[in-house]
Design a protein around this nucleic acid. Structure first.
Length: 197
DNA sequence: ACGGGGATCCTCT
DNA sequence: GAGGATCCCCGTT
């Protein structure tokens, strides 16, 4: 147990945070409702030294949050349609963020089904854009502080039985780096295929 | 189960 | 002006 993760948890090397986030519970408060799910898959993205990262070419208007203080969200739109959610790591002015890729739904499943428009529990949060839709996380949440009371991550004492590592999914550059972490055999992991190297 | 294509628009070159 | 850290739908095995 330990409750809401403090900023110090995020103020570490990004790959280390990505590994440690497996098993933690992402919580979204919407009014009086609580939606939550356990993180079963994520990826680490570095700074100006990581060609697969949005921060590779330095700070811009879009990736600004990646260079900010740890423990905040970096949200972006992808393929014109979808939203992805990242947790900012490292220290201020050093870019680094963990892309949350899949959740095992826990609380508020009926509400997630409404936001997603699907009934299958396994399809609610098994992809980075799916989980944002399920938890009603939008571009307006870019920069949100995870020490606040809208979105946060908790440690409920549960740890994954096993952790596996692979290359990241969907990249054309930075494909070789083994920075994707997931719980092998977990049915809520996304269907994407690692980019390989 | 797996794979290809379209949607659709903002950001940076 | 090109190209996405994706999803969904529709094919074929």
């Amino acid at each position: 147990m330990g409750g809401k993760l403090p900023r110090s948890f995020y103020a570490r090397p990004t790959a280390e945070v990505a590994c440690d986030l497996l098993g933690m519970v992402l919580v979204r408060r919407l009014g009086d409702s609580i939606l939550s799910g356990r993180i079963v898959e994520d990826e680490a993205y570095g700074g100006t030294d990581d060609p697969g990262s949005h921060a590779f070419r330095g700070s811009t208007a879009r990736n600004h949050s990646m260079f900010g203080p740890p423990g905040h969200l970096y949200i972006y739109r992808i393929y014109a349609v979808h939203i992805c959610m990242n947790v900012v790591c490292e220290t201020a002015n050093v870019a680094g963020a963990v892309l949350v890729r899949a959740l095992h739904p826990l609380q508020g499943i009926q509400q997630m089904e409404r936001y997603r428009g699907v009934r299958s529990e396994r399809d609610l949060c098994n992809g980075p854009a799916k989980l944002c839709q399920a938890l009603d996380i939008t571009l307006r949440d870019d920069g949100v502080d995870l020490e606040g009371d809208e979105i946060w991550i908790e440690d409920d004492g549960t740890r994954p039985a096993e952790v596996a590592v692979s290359t990241r999914i969907g990249l054309s550059r930075g494909r070789e780096a083994p920075l994707r972490f997931y719980v092998p055999g977990n049915p809520y992991v996304s269907r994407g295929k690692p980019s390989g190297g």
